[in-house]
Write a protein that binds this DNA or RNA. Structure first.
Length: 271
DNA sequence: AGGTGTTCCTGCAGGC
DNA sequence: TGCCTGCAGGAACACC
């Protein structure tokens, strides 16, 4: 399930394949994912040279020398397959470089998206307009959280999933960060002490950085002849572990809110 | 307006 | 064994 660390890992893995490469062939194999593919995708990208790859929140960005940026979102089941031996069902977009490298964007559930936007207008890309700070960037601080969460009565769990508060956290890492910060996920977002917000910022840093580090090591998979971008299976402290023992001797619990599950340890997360 | 719920899509796990 | 149901996820949208 691609969240920020997986997207970061993906971008790092795509970089040696695409950076400075000229795109020889671009072929959508169906009309749409979440949204239709841009009508001009093939025409704008074919023959273009990739000048940079980066990430914003959970979006991957591929800049070309024609002033376009291809913006991809992996949804929940999206991944780039590198030099696939054969095409699979749900390989929805193919890219081939002049050097003969091949990429297939595979996304069975089609929650992902592909857009094309002028590079110098990225701030006006609809999904980017209201994004909060990057959780690993300098603007993500306890002060920022205090301001962004002030007066909010919704739970801290749901508030952290709001991309306007912080950009790029999903269900898994919000659960994990709240656990490590020892904060009750149901606590009203606007009623959390500053010292706990500081702990939360540090916990977000820790869980994301360790996940990226684990993902980096899985890039070895990349080198395989039919290599796919490996998503690391990380051992989570609480996520997906309902009923299992917590390290404290308590038990991991689960509840549903806003249509999704929250995993937590009531013994550890009293704050 | 902020908070909450619904929808999109497919694969898979679990239950009967 | 096989079918059915429900769940997983991010983001956009509808509603109160």
């Amino acid at each position: 399930m691609p969240e920020l660390p997986e997207v970061e890992t993906t971008v790092r893995g795509l970089t040696p394949v695409l950076l400075d490469a000229t795109l020889a062939r671009v072929e959508p194999r169906r009309g749409d994912l979440r949204r239709p593919f841009p009508a001009e995708l093939r025409q704008r990208l074919t023959g273009a040279r990739v000048t940079a790859l980066s990430r914003r929140a959970k979006y991957g960005l591929i800049d070309t020398d024609r002033g376009d940026t291809l913006i991809f979102h992996l949804g929940m089941s999206g991944r780039w397959r590198v030099d696939p031996a054969e095409l699979l069902a749900h390989d929805h977009l193919l890219i081939e470089t002049q050097a003969g490298r091949r990429l297939a964007l595979n996304d069975p559930r089609r929650f992902g998206s592909v857009d094309l936007w002028p590079t110098d207008e990225l701030a006006h890309f609809p999904a980017f307009g209201a994004l909060g700070p990057e959780p690993l960037g300098p603007a993500f601080t306890a002060d920022h959280l205090r301001t962004a969460l002030a007066g909010k009565t919704t739970s801290i769990k749901l508030a952290l999933l709001d991309q306007r508060v912080v950009a790029g956290l999903g269900n898994i890492y919000v659960c994990e960060a709240l656990y490590h910060a020892r904060i009750n996920p149901r606590r009203a977002a606007g009623r959390i002490a500053r010292s706990r917000l500081q702990r939360l910022v540090e916990a977000v840093h820790d869980v994301l950085e360790s996940a990226i580090a684990a993902g980096g090591s899985s890039l070895r998979d990349y080198a395989r002849p039919d290599g796919e971008l490996g998503y690391f299976s990380k051992q989570f402290a609480v996520y997906g572990r309902e009923g299992e023992p917590c390290g404290c001797g308590g038990t991991v619990h689960r509840y549903a809110e806003g249509g999704r599950s929250t995993f937590w340890c009531p013994a550890c997360q009293r704050g």
